[in-house]
Amino acid sequence: MTTPATPTSRAAALEFRGVTKRYGSGEESTGAVNDLSFTVPAGTICVLVGPSGCGKTTSLKMVNRLIEPTGGQILLDGSDVMSEDVTALRRRIGYVIQQVGLFPHLTIGRNVAVVPALMGWTRERQQARTDELLSLVGLEPGRYRNRYPSQLSGGERQRVGVARALAADPPLMLMDEPFAAVDPIVRQRLQDEFLRLQRALAKTILFVTHDVDEAIKMGDLIAVMEEGGRLAQFGPPEEILAHPASDFVARFVGQDRGLKRLSLSTIADLRTEPLGRREGLPTFSPDTTLRDALSILLVADTRGGVALDEAGQPRGLVTVDAIASALADDRPRRAARA
């Protein structure tokens, strides 16, 4: 999507202002996060990505004050998180972690309703909210409400983790490698479902991953971090892929960053050429990514393929050259997410 989802009253802007964290003191103190500054507009997903140990988790946990910064400020809708009551602050920030951390002794229903219960909602309101959220994350409330976490698959648990974080309708969500513990197929489905959810919810989300592909797929904005907790580059995915700010970023996003950029655009974005004979040519639906289209064209070894429109009618010819020139285009549109 080109334009960030419309911010709702339910989303908060997040700002890191010169945030620093050092563990230990004196000689042996090590910098985990170093002078980190960036702004996440309300309603957008910002992904923190970088190699292991570069300070992603530390940065995330400073937002809900599980870790206290050594210096700098973190502002939530303009006000310093350090100035707020820590319990109240945490209750209005959703928190999802890789290990999920569901309460094994509570049913799925009670797990989801944990924060509403802490906030003193009535039983009826908690129950209604639980059922609504379970449906939202694709778990039929009647089937799952009364089960215990041990009776769920890893992917189902992860969904419950997301539902639980959304329970009190927080304006900000912190997600630390939320989909890392499941296999690639489930991960992809969870990512897709989450993006679909986010289109409706338009939360502000700080999302941690060490996987560049996940960062590109999930992020409206990406903060690439490097060892020592420094910000290597901050910007939308297409900018980071097209113009890596340093050798480190270029290496980190990979040799195939060109292909990765292609996966951000779809056939619908592409200027097509007049269509001649179409017999024997592969066809592409509008939501096919340019990366997939290129792959298909190279394998099919034809002069091109047929781009279809929403109605399934031929729109024009897609060629390898046209796809290549889309890369030359400085900022391909991100239609994949529209």
Partner: peptide, 9 residues
């Protein structure tokens, strides 16, 4: 579980 509990307030 403790980390989640702390993080949720």
């Amino acid at each position: 579980v403790l980390d989640a509990a702390d993080g949720m307030g």
